[in-house]
Amino acid sequence: MDYVYAFLVGGAICAVGQVLISKTNLTPARILVMYVSAGVILTVLGLYQPLADFGGAGATVPLSGFGFSLAKGAMEAAQQEGIAGAITGGLSKTAAGITAAVLFGYLAAVLFNPKSKK
């Protein structure tokens, strides 16, 4: 059942993004910023954790889940280390993802070439 919930929650979160793409002329970059921001804000408000408990990867895989990690990391570290935690907590918790993106991005650039579209 976990898989069904992940599918439904993840699909719904992406569908919201599709509405933004189809109905507004927001560019992908702006939509991604909105998603990560929404993830942070909803986590602070205590609304994203229940969604993650229910939907599992359906909530953590979309980019709002990245915001969720950033917020959780900062909030947990702040409670343990005060202001220093508030500053370092977010990026610390998401370091694996960011490093992977930089590393694999660079490798792919080295190994592959872009192709003209048909």
């Binding site: 970059a29 942070v40 990245f66 508030a86 930089v102 650039a109």
Partner: peptide
Amino acid sequence: GVGAKMFAIAGPVLVYGTILSVAAGIAAL
């Protein structure tokens, strides 16, 4: 080329995500 342009589209995500995470940490305090 590669180094600078890599974050042309994802950069804003990191900028705004980081700033908001600090705000989140402060809110928790």
